[in-house]
Simulated assay, not measured.
Amino acid sequence: MAIEKEGTFEVNGHSLYTKSWLPSGATKAKLIFFHGFSDHLGRYEAFFSTLAARGIAVYGLDQRGWGRSVKKPADRGLTGPTSQVLADMAAFIAPHLPSSPGDPPVFVMGHSMGGGQVLTLACHPDYQESVVRRVRGWLLEAPFISFSPEEQPSAVKVFAGRLAARLMPHFQLKHEIMPEHLSRDPAVREDLARDELMHNTGTLEGLAGLLDRTAALARGEVRPQPGGALRSLWIGHGTEDKTTWFPASRKWFDECATEIKDREFKTYEGWYHTLHSDGPDSEQFFKDVGDWILARCEDEQPEAKL
């Protein structure tokens, strides 16, 4: 049984909604989680409760511009540039990092857009010593490394959007993500369509930053820094994901993660984008993530799984 707590996180004058799922017994590990585009923590309830029941405390926040951190319509999609996104993430992770040898190990995970953000942070040279080296493992759920063919915008639209972002950074633009592209479960699709917190609105500045991060990942320009600060990496992706592209995740893993000894790529055959809510099979995803985290609480030198 999980103990749920709501709160706020203050960063640079902004108050962001937070929620944690804590074990009723001993805490074996901590997981810091970052959600995806037009997403919020409320969509991960079953996943986080299951992890907490296994002794993994989960801490998350609705990022700037999303979910319950939106106080007024003008806040929607107002994420700021990539530098702000990464600074927010690092600031939220920092208080949870171990301060003594007996503290539970910390893991960081992101889904979709959040997965791309987490990977960018884990590979960023400015955060290697302050954050990356102190995190035991990094997990990515269907990370946004490239659009799926179904969601790929035209080159003209991308160019025009980046140009406009320089002139009108806070201009809001809708980017609809079809519920039928996210989950195989009809009940989840209906719930997604009704979810008023999922506003599908970005700002030109935020969308441009998202596109730039994704392009850098897809080109292989973002990869682990020399020195081994990024110790462990797990990527899970569904082969029928219609939002982010499975082949791009696999390609990045095969070409850019070779220096990470402890790495695993988990293929979910036939699954869609929200592995945490893709029908009854999602319980297997819960188990895979929990098993991977708990194994690293016991074993500091696991072997790679290719």
Rank of each mutant, 00 (worst) to 15 (best):
E4L: 09
T8L: 06
E10Q: 14
V11C: 14
N12Q: 06
T18Q: 04
K19Y: 03
S20G: 06
W21A: 04
L22G: 01
P23M: 04
S24G: 15
K28G: 11
K28P: 10
F34I: 08
F34N: 13
H35S: 09
H35C: 07
H35W: 01
H35P: 10
G36N: 00
F37W: 03
F37K: 00
D39S: 08
R43G: 03
Y44I: 05
Y44M: 05
G55P: 04
I56A: 00
A57W: 02
D62A: 08
Q63E: 10
W66A: 14
G67E: 00
G67P: 00
V70C: 12
K72G: 10
P73G: 09
A74Q: 10
D75I: 11
L78Y: 07
G80I: 02
G80P: 02
G80R: 00
P81W: 01
T82G: 03
T82R: 00
S83L: 06
Q84N: 13
L86N: 01
L86S: 01
A91K: 08
F92Y: 15
F92G: 07
P95E: 15
S99E: 15
P104F: 12
V106R: 11
G110R: 09
H111L: 06
G114Q: 03
G116M: 00
G116T: 00
Q117I: 02
L119K: 02
L121G: 02
P125H: 07
E129T: 14
S130W: 03
R136I: 05
E141L: 09
E141F: 03
P143D: 01
P143F: 00
P149T: 08
E150D: 11
V156W: 08
K157S: 09
F159H: 12
A165V: 05
M168A: 12
M168H: 10
F171P: 05
F171S: 14
L173N: 10
H175P: 02
E176L: 11
I177A: 08
H181I: 06
L182D: 09
S183N: 02
R184E: 12
P186D: 04
V188W: 02
E190I: 12
E190P: 08
E190L: 13
D191R: 13
D191W: 11
D195A: 05
L197G: 14
M198T: 14
M198V: 13
G202K: 01
G206Y: 01
L207Q: 13
G209C: 11
G209H: 04
G209K: 04
R213H: 03
A216G: 06
L217V: 15
G220P: 14
R223E: 09
R223N: 09
R223D: 09
Q225N: 12
A229G: 15
L230G: 07
L230R: 14
S232M: 07
I235V: 14
H237P: 04
D241R: 00
K242T: 07
T244N: 02
T244L: 01
A248G: 05
A248K: 00
R250I: 03
R250A: 10
K251R: 14
W252P: 08
A257H: 11
E264H: 13
K266A: 13
T267A: 07
T267F: 00
E269L: 02
G270F: 02
G270L: 07
W271N: 12
D278S: 03
G279P: 10
S282A: 15
S282P: 14
F285S: 07
F285A: 11
D288R: 04
G290S: 04
G290V: 00
D291Y: 09
A295W: 03
R296M: 11
E298V: 15
E300I: 11
K305H: 08
K305P: 01
